[in-house]
Write a protein that binds this DNA or RNA. Sequence first.
DNA 1: CGGTTGGTTAAGCATGTGCTTTAGTATTCC
DNA 2: GGAATACTAAAGCACATGCTTAACCAACCG
Lengths: 114, 114
Amino acid sequence: MLNQPSPLDLTFQALADPTRRALVERLVRGPASVSELAQPLDMSLPAVMQHLAVLESSGLVRSEKVGRVRTCRIDGGTLSLAEQWINQRRMEWASRLDRLGQYLETLKNQGEEP
Amino acid sequence: MLNQPSPLDLTFQALADPTRRALVERLVRGPASVSELAQPLDMSLPAVMQHLAVLESSGLVRSEKVGRVRTCRIDGGTLSLAEQWINQRRMEWASRLDRLGQYLETLKNQGEEP
DNA sequence: CGGTTGGTTAAGCATGTGCTTTAGTATTCC
DNA sequence: GGAATACTAAAGCACATGCTTAACCAACCG
């Protein structure tokens, strides 16, 4: 991860931490301020901000500051980017198993018929 | 991640590395030996094995050794576990936006009718 | 104005991660 | 048996991560 990490790197890395997933779980229910997000978590405010920075640099979360309160919200597009990557692999994996099954079926039938 | 990490932690962590995603992309096309997996990668064999160990401890990959060659294959279940987590958040996020849209629609109609 | 609230910055520290090299151990081939 | 193959184990190192505490700043409140 030395040479600038890809969006996918950043997104999966962001999701790899339980605290950050908890933040995402909170934010899918609607926007929230930094201290609202920090309140249920058992760590210092700066720690929460660092987690938010990770989420934001991955694109999973966007935020804007008005007055002295920063409001954070989910970016669904980034979420679905990660989902798509997994989905495509799983699809390819499943279709390969399918072809394999069909092939084994033809072998079985060849053994029965003649 | 000090106190034993959850399957989701391990899986997203495993997917956060481009080399490991490349290994997964290779393995969805079918099983392969360690050295087959290492061949296209620009790093030492032990490094590849460490990546495989990460994938295996997450459950994304299983492997068995027969003779002197270890054959690795994808576990689709673990892949879909990660996919489901994302999908559920994205669904919840989308349905909230939907309710919000409907609410705004009713507000608009109330303004027009009377 | 002065205090509280909400957030930010910086520094420091323990532990984790992603490699490397070097030195093995089994298997299989001739 | 001896060489080649396929993997494994161990140690070490540079850098990243996930916290902490101790200031600090800016906006609102009375």
